[in-house]
Design a binder for these strands. Sequence first.
RNA 1: GGAGGGAUGGCCGAGUGGACGAAGGCAACGGUCUUGAAAACCGUAGUGGGCUUUGCCCACCGGGGGUUCGAAUCCCUCUCCCUCCGCCA
Length: 423
Amino acid sequence: MLDIRLFRENPDLVRDALRKRQVSPTMVDEILALDRQRRDLLRESEALKAERNRVSKEIGRSKDAADREAKIAAMRQVRERIAALDQALRETEARLHDALARVPNIPAAQVPEGRDEHDNVVLRQEGDQPQFDFTPLPHWELGPRLGIIDFERGVKLSGTRFYILKGAGARLERALIAWMLDLHREQGYTEIYPPFMVKEAVLFASGQLPKFRDNLYHDAEEDFWWVPTAEVPLTGMHMNETFAESDLPRYYTAYTPCFRREKMSAGRDVRGIKRGHQFDKVEMYIYTLPEASDQVLEKMLADAEQVLRDLGLTYRVVQLCTGDLGFAARLTYDLEVWAPGSNEWLEVSSVSNVGDFQARRANIRYRPEGGGKPRFVHTLNGSGLALPRTVIAILENYQQPDGSVVIPEVLRPYLGGLAMLRP
RNA sequence: GGAGGGAUGGCCGAGUGGACGAAGGCAACGGUCUUGAAAACCGUAGUGGGCUUUGCCCACCGGGGGUUCGAAUCCCUCUCCCUCCGCCA
């Protein structure tokens, strides 16, 4: 959520930001009109309330019965008018709040301008694309051959975009989660095991609602929403809290499954385990002082990169352009890992500085050391990493001519020493 | 699931219709005293919003709604916490 004052004081800055994001800037004028209307109603209502407060006190003190009756009658009228104004005010505020809640964050100045993902900028590549003296298979062939992925039975249970991991496949998934959490813990993050279902207010706080309702699963009878990412509970965890400055920064890491309806990508990536309705992810999340957030973003990026480096995988760092930036983000780096069997770069991590955008929605502040008004914190989030695509990369990069797959060294202690998957 | 009891400022805690944004205590901050500190004493202090911004006004006592000229206080409702009973991995 943006500060309404930004619209009043610098509407062109907001319009410009929306244009760069390929979003129509007409909402700016709508918001300014609602803001004007709100303040007009508020002024009128508050003036009447001041009068009511003043006269009511006089009524309490008055000894004159006739005087009291006259004032009570007059204030009855005032009450009616206040009620009508407040009703109009509530409606205006609801519309203003809803409009404001749908405005994306302002991109940071250094974000390259562009229409969509084709205009993202590859900053660097780490490692070379491996050469094979045979044709590398895609994971959707390797998995079933190794007996570790069962697509048919996943579909039998739950339909398209579901699969079963079996035997060493299930163990590999679990090993990756445990290893990533341990790595992040060593990097300074506190491990969190959050609820996988949260209230609507939490999804609003992190920015998923109201705009992305269609991509979420929710319980029909109760106020439960399945998390689409651990970023959601890790934001909501400190909702309506005020930190002491000395409490910051806070580094968190969490494993959760992520549940997404994927309505937007119907028919895309239907093969393999690249895009499912349920997938595992280890997430990093940081609360910082505003001044520190840009610097902390670089640490988070490095921490995510270490996962790929330790696995010995080839990846590239991509800076998202304005048109591809997520709703809440002001600056985002994607990490894409090379998958030789699928023959594509797979997004396994998205590392973002959100600024105060979520903090404002979630009302998360800190009190400056020297005293003074509470200020909003900055939040950052980054995957470290998304599991299925990491599994894809491991299977496809470490496959051997005979169809077996070598397990990366770092994972072997988590797999009882297992070094090789064999058909 | 049933019965009962709760939720007040940073913390504790008083307050059952009118000078209550809220006593008192603790903690915090500033000052006096002191070589320094402690103690003692004096003082300052909440959050958000509006405006014609040395200030004035509005709102906020778990959330929402209602009664009333006027609500922390009365009514309805929701959420959460505690106690007991039941059920349960």
